[in-house]
Design a binder for these strands. Structure first.
Lengths: 128, 128
DNA sequence: CTGGATCCAATTTGATACTG
DNA sequence: CAGTATCAAATTGGATCCAG
């Protein structure tokens, strides 16, 4: 568990992880995960997302959608009907991402209680 | 792949994931991941983190450190020496988190190029 | 229905200076 | 060394109106 057991320095190790943070930031936006989770079940329409993703505003939905589309995580299909119909679906790499996300989601579910307790304990100690 | 194959609606499915987003948001902060990765290799000091975690400011380092400590992800050890020495180390659940994070990190590494290409393509199409 | 554009409020962050 | 305090700047988010 000590950093002295390997030939790679902590700096190199983190350096390696940094561009990832950049990529991850796109996914880590407040709404991106919700949208990916919602779209993971099948093509989904704009209004459907607006109702599904908790408290998102139309503006944020549009922005996040564009960001995910730009990064190649969402595929956008426009049906030239009237009124217009647009469906969003996950690309292959987004589907992969969704699987990786599951691991994180599991962790969050497993420790949600522990984390809440830690917070109460921390806040309680501060109030003493 | 269709949502019609299960008995759970998309709404229920997302509903289920939402409290997680709340938990995840703490981890998803711009700096939290970098700090967790840095601390995963062993106890690390404040100044060490300041140098290690790319472009973090002292203020953000302090705030993120406190947040992670409050959530029970970091353990803070103060050595009452002069000058003072403080070491941060991962708690058990944070070590678990770090493993889950690895899956995400792997994804980001695998598709970094693809994502960059998708962005260029998207931006290029817009400029046409 | 699907969004783009704009204005404004709230939040976040960085720079800097100071302290035990 | 390890922070805290403060102020200004930047970012983000919501509300609203308009349009194909």
């Amino acid at each position: 568990m000590s950093q002295r057991n390997t030939g790679v320095t902590r700096e190199e190790f983190v350096e390696e992880a940094c561009p990832i943070v950049e990529v991850l930031d796109h996914v880590a936006g407040k709404w991106a995960i919700g949208i990916i989770v919602a779209a993971a079940r099948g093509p989904v329409r704009f209004t459907e997302l607006e109702r599904t993703v908790n408290g998102i505003s139309r503006r944020m939905l549009t922005l996040t959608l564009r960001k995910l589309e730009r990064d190649g995580l969402l595929h956008r299909t426009v049906y030239p009907t009237v009124p217009p119909k647009v469906e969003y679906s996950l690309t292959d790499i987004a589907r992969e991402l969704h699987e990786s996300l599951s691991s994180l989601v599991d962790w969050a579910e497993r420790h949600r209680g522990t984390i809440a307790a830690a917070r109460r304990s921390y806040d309680g100690a501060a109030a003493s």
